[in-house]
Computed example of a mutant assay.
Amino acid sequence: MEKLFDINENGHSVRCKLFYEKDLQAIENVVIVLHGFGSSKDLKSNTKFGERLHAKYKNYAALAFDLPCHGTDARKKLSLAECLLYLQIVLDYAKNHLHAKQIYAYGTSFGGYLVLKYIAEQGNPFAKIAMRSPALQIYHSLSNRLTDDERHKLAKGKEILFGFERKMKVTKDFFDDLAQGEIMQNDYLAYADDMLIVHGTADEMVDIQVSQEFADNNVIELIPVEGADHPFTNPNLMDFAIGKIVGFLGE
C-alpha cells in the first residue's frame, strides 16, 4: 500500500510517501529513502523499492520524502541546513508516530551524501545504511555544472535558479556549505559493517573510483554494477541494485 501525507513541524511541511504491507500497526522497521539532487520521492524506482521491501519483509516499510525545493515541496530557496532538518523531522516521525523499533537509510546520490553528513554531525541513528551512487564530492559535482555567468552572480551575492526539471533558488552560501562539508575526510569505520554502496561502472556524474576509494578507506562493501549509469536508467540493472539493497537491509 501507499500513503501520501505531510509532516507539519515548526513551520515546515515535509511531503512524504509511505510504502507498507497492509497494517500500519504491524510496522516494526522503517527505511527512510532519500532521493538525489533535482529528484523527488515519486520516482518509479522508489515505488519499486518500497513494494519489494515490504513484499519480502512483512514488518518493514519504506518512507520517502521530498527534500526542500524538490518534488511537491513548497520551499523555493535551497539550503543544506534545511535538507538535514527535513531528515531529522522524518526520523522523529518514524520513531514517535510509526513507533519503529529499527530505522534504516537508503540514500541515492545527494541523498547518500546527506545521510553521511548527518551521521558525521549528529551520530548514527540507523541500524543499516545503503547508498546507490552516493555523491561523495557533491560540491564538485554541482559546481562543475555552473556557467561563468552563474558563478559571477553567486560571487556578487546574488541568487541563481539552479536544478533540472524544477529550478530552485540557490546562493553562494549553499555552495560554501557543501564545500565545507567534505565527506571524504570523515571516518566511518565504526559503521562500516552496517553500510553498503552500490555504484555503476558507467556513472557519468559521480566516478565509481571515488566511491571505491571511500569504501576502501572505511572498509565498506561496494558492489560495482557493470554498465550502470548514474540514475541506473537500465531497468534490469536497477532491479539488480534494488534486490541487493533490499536483501542487505533485511538481513
Rank of each mutant, 00 (worst) to 15 (best):
E2A: 10
N10G: 09
N10I: 08
G11F: 11
C16P: 09
C16G: 05
N29W: 08
V30S: 07
V33L: 07
G36A: 05
K44E: 15
K44A: 05
S45A: 02
K48L: 10
K48Q: 10
G50K: 04
R52S: 06
R52P: 02
H54Y: 12
A55W: 08
K56A: 13
L63P: 07
D66S: 14
L78C: 00
A81T: 13
A81G: 00
E82S: 07
Y86T: 01
Y86V: 05
I89V: 05
L91N: 03
L91M: 15
Y93V: 12
H97V: 14
H97N: 11
Q102L: 14
Y104V: 04
G107N: 11
G107Y: 11
F110K: 06
G111Q: 10
L114W: 11
V115A: 15
Y118F: 13
E121F: 08
Q122N: 15
G123P: 11
A130L: 06
R132T: 10
I138E: 08
Y139G: 14
H140E: 07
S141M: 12
S141L: 04
S141Q: 07
L146E: 12
E150F: 12
K153H: 11
L154G: 04
K158H: 15
I160L: 12
G163F: 02
E165P: 01
E165C: 02
K172C: 00
F174A: 02
F174Y: 15
F175P: 14
F175W: 03
D176S: 10
D177L: 02
A179M: 08
M184I: 12
A192K: 07
V198L: 03
H199F: 01
G200D: 08
T201P: 03
T201F: 01
E204V: 06
M205K: 13
Q209Y: 03
S211K: 09
E213H: 09
D216T: 09
D216I: 15
P224C: 02
E226V: 15
G227L: 04
D239Q: 07
A241F: 11
I245M: 10
F248W: 06
